[in-house]
Design a protein around this nucleic acid. Structure first.
Length: 607
RNA sequence: GGUCCGGUAGCUCAGCUGGAUAGAGCAACAGCCUUCUAAGCUGUGGGUCUCGGGUUCGAAUCCCGACCGGAUCACCA
């Protein structure tokens, strides 16, 4: 609730008290933005008072309207009552004050402290902002990043920005799954079929090179299975006994036993992958404050499980495997250590949590991981809590939906993936193509500037396309249809910004003190929109939803374009009106830029 | 089968803490550039908000029940 809503709310309560002698509670004060087809800015829904007034809704609305006009201290300029809706027109002076306040606030829309709703269990104990750790990306090191990872990375990065704006100290982290059978598969295929190929020798990006051998492994493995089945084995047996699989498993055992050769190869190939990932991350514009590797955390997890075993949180079965009993919580029993003593995913996550908590005073832990792992995180939350991690019980699994292709899910091994690097290339290329038609507006720019614009716009289109969808929902990506640059898109918002910047470049300095005191409806509408921004940031933070920011930025850009179309800024002869429009435009640009920054989208000065 | 999530225009999606005649974009059609960037603006057509009950002044929104789609319930990650 912003200050206007607060003021109206207080006045409305007083009106109800004075007119009908009843104390209205907060839940009965329902305010909404007035629909465009009616006159007014803010609307009070009076249905809740109809019973206590024992009058027709329209009459109640009119009575409250009259009272507010008489007692509203010039805040309310006009009112009209339509059925049970009381539409209030707020005075121009109020809006102009709001605009000046927004202009004066360098960090408009950013908060010092998290909202009440988001406050953690350690409330008040620490000094300064509470700390939120956001884990995202978390790739396997056997293949390059694809569109699914892109959604994860963009959501994770954006959520981190949004929470920072909401007053959290945020640590972005990445847990790299750098060990396991999948990496061994790539390693083995490379040894057998690679002929010593390196990123340098082939010119391939390291992660792509490794990914190629992962696919190669699968191909050869399937051939062996087919061979065994042709020789009379059933499928299960063939899968289990295929020589390549046995070799890969042997390699994993050697890795766990610290075999120097296997470890050296593993380290070398992982380095190739990291170099490739770094490039993709840099291009995507995401970053991390701290990176953990599972090869370093899984042993920590084992010892945590041992401790839990000693303290009776877990139990050991006859075959030596270790389990947690979650039946009290309505869940199953969960394996933590296999009978051969090796760790599972859950074990590693416990170990990672331990190290993280040693490294940072975490108040809130957020895992950005797909919705197929909801059960896993439900269990992890309970286990961390039982093991005594303060953030365990309230950990947030920021669960998002899959990215689907027209023919279904993406599968790395089957090659039905949209590669992250290719996709970014394509987007930037498309942006460059489109801007070629705009030579008249972009004349005189250097090749570097043109590259920068294409990069920002192409990536902006991609990021907005992904982030505007409610994270919880599955989303569809059709590679055959290119992502739009018109309509409800990133470039639309960037274009709006570039237009404003162009106007501001041509204008003299801003003079907030010399603005007009009269507002055109389009101007008022824009100011009102700007006023919504802080509460939008709060909602996006509380709900973990970059989509909320997207919707807002789009609405703001729409409002501005309508204003821009109807009213002249630089050619306005009334200097006070001109000053107001410049001030307004500058602040729309500021808020658009701020909102897009929360999405990780950069704004071009011209396009 | 149990649990969780989703179903809104031809397509992609908003709206969901109950409020006025359910909104955008794309696609289709018709207009607007001698004037601050036309990646823009304006208009037209397009809906059984999956279905059936219930709650109430009022339901796309809340509750119950179907149906459809997805995820998950591994000594996988």
């Amino acid at each position: 609730m912003n200050s206007l809503e607060q003021q109206i709310s207080t006045l409305a309560k007083a009106a109800v008290k004075a007119l009908y002698g009843v104390e209205a509670d907060d839940g009965q004060i329902q305010l909404q933005k007035t629909r465009p087809e009616f006159e007014g800015n803010i609307t009070l829904v009076v249905f809740p008072f109809v019973k206590m007034a024992r009058k027709a809704p329209a009459q109640v609305a009119a009575e409250i309207g009259e009272w507010l006009m008489a007692n509203g201290e010039e805040l309310i300029a006009k009112y009209n009552a339509v059925q049970g809706f009381l539409n209030l027109s707020i005075s121009d002076a109020f809006w102009i004050d709001q605009l000046k306040a927004i202009d004066a606030d360098e960090h408009y829309g950013h908060f010092e402290q998290p909202s009440e709703k988001a406050l953690p269990f350690r409330k008040g104990e620490g000094v300064g902002s509470p700390l939120m750790m956001v884990e995202y990306s978390s790739p396997n090191t056997n293949k390059p990043l694809h569109l699914g990872h892109v959604r994860n990375n963009l959501l994770g990065y954006s959520i981190a920005q949004i929470q920072e704006a909401n007053g959290w100290k945020v640590v972005k982290t990445n847990i790299v799954n750098d060990r396991g059978i999948h990496i061994c598969k790539s390693m083995l295929a490379w040894l057998k079929f690679g002929n010593g190929e390196t990123p340098e020798s082939s010119g391939k990006k390291g992660d792509h090179l490794i990914g190629d051998y992962y696919v190669r492994f699968d191909k050869e493995y399937k051939a062996q299975i087919a061979e065994l089945m042709a020789a009379g084995k059933d499928e299960e047996t063939a899968k289990r006994e295929a020589p390549l699989m046995l070799e890969a498993q042997e390699m994993l055992r050697k890795w766990e036993a610290n075999d120097p050769e296997v470890r050296a190869l593993w380290a070398r190939m992982n380095e190739w992958v990291y170099a490739g990932f770094d490039e993709t991350y840099r291009r995507m514009g995401v970053s991390f404050d701290k990176i953990y590797y599972e090869s370093n955390t899984y042993l920590e997890g084992k010892s945590e499980v041992e401790k839990g075993l000693a303290s009776g949180v877990f139990y050991r079965r006859e075959d030596g495997s270790v389990w947690a009993d979650l039946t009290q919580d309505g869940l199953d029993e969960k394996l933590l250590l296999r009978s051969d003593g090796t760790s599972v995913y859950m074990t590693q996550d416990i170990g990672t949590a331990k190290l993280r908590f040693q490294d940072y005073p975490i108040d809130k832990m957020v895992y950005v991981v797909g919705n197929e792992q909801e059960y896993h995180f439900k269990v992890l939350s309970i286990l961390l809590d039982r093991l005594g991690f303060p953030f365990g019980k309230e950990l947030v699994h920021f669960s998002y939906g899959m990215v689907e292709l027209p023919n279904g899910k993406m599968k790395s091994r089957e090659g039905t993936v949209v590669d992250a690097d290719d996709l970014m290339d394509k987007m930037v290329e498309d942006a460059r193509e489109i801007s070629k038609d705009k030579v008249n507006t972009l004349q005189g720019i250097t090749a570097e500037e043109a590259d920068e614009i294409a990069r920002k716009v192409g990536l902006g289109a991609l990021k907005y396309f992904i982030l505007k969808v409610d994270p919880r929902k599955n989303m569809l990506f059709n590679p055959a249809e290119s992502i739009d640059f018109n309509g409800n898109t990133g470039p639309f918002i960037q274009y709006t910004y570039a237009r404003i910047r162009s106007v501001l470049r041509k204008a003299e300095s801003l003079q907030p003190s010399a603005v007009s005191s009269q507002l055109d409806p389009k101007e008022l509408n824009l100011i009102q929109r700007l006023c919504e921004y802080p509460s939008i940031v709060r909602t996006a933070g509380d709900d973990f939803s970059p989509a909320v920011i997207c919707n807002y930025a789009y609405a703001l850009a729409c409002d501005f374009n309508s204003f821009y179309h109807d009213l002249s800024i630089l050619n306005e002869s009334d200097t006070q009106k001109k000053a107001l429009r410049l001030l307004l435009s500058a602040n729309v640009a500021k808020v658009l830029c701020s909102a897009m920054a929360l999405l990780g989208i950069e704004m071009p000065e011209r396009m």
